[in-house]
Design a protein around this nucleic acid. Sequence first.
DNA 1: ACTTAATTTTAAACGTAAGTCAAAATTTAA
DNA 2: TTAAATTTTGACTTACGTTTAAAATTAAGT
Lengths: 194, 194
Amino acid sequence: MKLSERKVLRKKEQILLSAINIINQKGYSGTTMEEVASELLMTKGSLYYYFKNKSDLMYQCHNFVLSQATKDLESILEDGGPVKDVLKKMIETHITYAIDEKETFNLIMEPKRFFNEEQLELVLKLRNHYEGLFDEIIQRGIEVDEFHAEEPKIARMIILGAMNWVQQWYRPEGRLSKEDLITLYSDYILKILE
Amino acid sequence: MKLSERKVLRKKEQILLSAINIINQKGYSGTTMEEVASELLMTKGSLYYYFKNKSDLMYQCHNFVLSQATKDLESILEDGGPVKDVLKKMIETHITYAIDEKETFNLIMEPKRFFNEEQLELVLKLRNHYEGLFDEIIQRGIEVDEFHAEEPKIARMIILGAMNWVQQWYRPEGRLSKEDLITLYSDYILKILE
DNA sequence: ACTTAATTTTAAACGTAAGTCAAAATTTAA
DNA sequence: TTAAATTTTGACTTACGTTTAAAATTAAGT
């Protein structure tokens, strides 16, 4: 790889990190290309040299965060251990992302609105892979007879939905600590798989 | 009430119904004031005679649909019967709205992005009321010892999240019929409350 | 029916933010 | 040092929400 190519990659990553910050504060619609640019002392025109358009930039931010979450889950799965413990760790990770990276983690919410067809395909692929990691642990649990589910994929959808909804109501400054929240969710989710 | 006032109300409702249709097809961002207006053979300027701005219009669409859903749930609750059956009916109603009125039912998703403070307050009030209806049936169930939940409101959040997520993946043309979906969801949700 | 007042609609603006582009500036490589 | 490649600029276009003053229409009183 040429020097110049590496430079472009570095710049792209700089832009991504900066954009992720702004998006997590102001949301997708609240974030302007102008603001992302000025944060890095560029003009917005330059952004279009690195990213095709706003939704491309947003897509890559989402991708960045989701890929990181994916890696986290993969390493939890690899570490192995009792299925219930593994699932609990996965739940903890997912909920933590959902809260801490609220906006970028869940651009997920309305992918069709924001992404074009090509991006959408990639998002869905990555998302399927991510969701598949939950299927994997559920499957393991079923095999060792610790989990039971008639339609495991539906159970997984229910679990994911329950966890994602956390963003809609949870406030860190509220009555429940993040730890409490995660404990409660883990317990309820395990009941689903009983 | 004067004739003119009634006329305004009728017109407002016409606009709402038309807007709800467009929003459910194209989503909030995909819907332009221009399009809503032209659907009714008006110019977009006129819309601003009836609604303060776009987010006011969208808010009222959401309100309209959510109010209808609320009435449906209230009448199910009033009818009474075995708590599990009542809850199942409520689940069916909620999921049906979530699928059929996808966009307007769940402007819910990101209320802060779209609504101003005043609207937000009203939305949250209505939403709390709506959610409270689920608390009510859960409470009934606990009292007759058919449901068990340590933190019933968290259980309710989990249930709502699970149901709302349906919009993200369910396709009527897919493998599962809406009936299958609702049956599966009901069964899983009842497990949460076991 | 006629006149005046109130209501409703219009069309032409404006503001903001996304996206484009040709030229200018800078960097790289020979 | 110079020519080519890369990167940045800023002015322009377009789209859409929103405002506004004036025009058109409708209602009400006599």
